[in-house]
Amino acid sequence: MDAIFNKEVTTVYAADVISFAKKMGYFPKNAKNKDFSFSDSYAPVDFGGARFCELRVWAMFNKIADGMDQYFEYGKGNIHYDKKGYATNRMPLWVKPNHKVDVKEVMDFMRDHLEGTELDMSKDIGAGAFGNPYRWRPMTWKVEGTSYCNERVTATQQTGFSFVSQSRSWLPDEIGGIIWFGVDDAASSCYFPMYSAATEVPYAFARGNGSMLEFTNEAAFWVFNQISNFAYTRYSYIHPEIEKKQNVTERAFMETVKVIDAKAKALYDAGKKEEALATVTNFSVKEGNAMVDDWRRFYGYLFAKYVDGNVKTKVPNQMNPKLEQPGYNKEWYEKVVKDAGEKLKMKGDAGH
């Protein structure tokens, strides 16, 4: 173990890693050691491992690497095994991107619901009338003895927090690290830049400001939960507005970070390390709190606009807004008619 920090040592393992696997039946006793696979022996992939875990990785790889379509069946849980019990159609552990990936792309990877695939969660009947790509737990269930599952995609409602870690080697360590941090469902949240060397956190994200059972409108977690849970009610209408605001806010942060980087580095290079740390700390604290304030107001805007199934639009110089009642889409009405058409059928021309 003394060599573990030697850069030339790429793999560290126990001396009996193979013999123990053979002893326990994880790897055939008559198999050749050169054919041993640690992952396939100690954690053989099954349907759940592929469908609920690997498929999320596939969704990200598929956006940045060529040829990933050949692994889609594997991600769906259709696994082929050899005589050793090893998966033969397994997805690569890593891929080389076909373009330079920026931090905003990685943020958006965290918001995936398998859109554009046959497993797109917004397309089947479970999505309801408004294409909601979420399913409430439990994740698996049975009907007449047959087991079924909901997808476990990257963006999920029970997320506590998520982050994208960005390391910039061209800056001093105290400035180069940023944790783009967000709370709740990544698809409805917003990432803000928390410098890794910051010595304080924004009050909106601070421990003790609310809890899982204590609601407070001052806590980022509860502000973003209000937004996401309201969006779930009419996703196809509300979520596009959230996505637009995410893009505007996060792109603006990325531009502002460039200014703070330059300011903090100038202080650092001048030997004013403490002032540099204060600069990045004050920035992260201020922007984190300001973002939550902004999105709290945004929730109020969404609620007022979409409450009660309506869509209200402000009309210049008029007290009352334009009111639309879009109802449901054609496909959903057809499903309703198929399920309950006879009891809902109108007699005559009466209307309301």
Rank of each mutant, 00 (worst) to 15 (best):
G176F: 03
K104C: 11
F224K: 00
D349R: 06
G145A: 05
E331N: 13
G348R: 02
V153G: 11
F298I: 12
N150C: 10
A270E: 15
T140H: 06
K273C: 05
N209I: 15
V106G: 07
V223L: 02
R296T: 04
V259T: 10
W222L: 00
A3L: 15
K335A: 14
V12A: 11
K22C: 09
A186D: 09
S167P: 02
Y86E: 00
A21T: 03
V164E: 01
P202Q: 03
D339Q: 14
D16V: 06
V95I: 11
V95T: 10
V337E: 14
F205I: 02
L93M: 07
S37V: 05
L277I: 10
N317W: 05
F221D: 03
T154K: 05
H80N: 13
T279P: 13
V183Q: 07
K76G: 04
S189K: 14
L93R: 12
Y299Q: 00
C149K: 07
I238C: 04
S162M: 09
A198N: 05
A204C: 08
Y333F: 15
E342M: 09
Y71R: 01
H239V: 13
W222Q: 01
A87F: 05
I178S: 01
K23I: 12
D102V: 04
M107W: 07
E274N: 12
F298V: 13
T159W: 01
K272S: 08
K7Q: 13
G182R: 07
V336F: 11
L302E: 01
E144A: 08
K258M: 03
A290Y: 05
P202M: 00
F61T: 15
P44G: 05
N6V: 00
N282D: 11
P133M: 08
E331W: 06
T313W: 00
K338E: 15
Y268C: 03
L344W: 10
V257A: 08
P172M: 07
N317D: 09
A14C: 06
P44M: 06
R234F: 11
A187L: 12
I238W: 04
Q226H: 06
W141D: 00
D294I: 02
D269K: 10
F215R: 06
F224E: 02
K76I: 05
A187I: 10
N132V: 01
G75Y: 01
W295P: 01
F5T: 05
Q158R: 12
S19K: 15
N33D: 14
N98F: 08
T156K: 10
F61W: 04
G48Q: 04
E250K: 02
D261C: 04
G131Q: 11
N247K: 12
M110F: 09
I260K: 01
T11Y: 13
Y268V: 00
P193N: 09
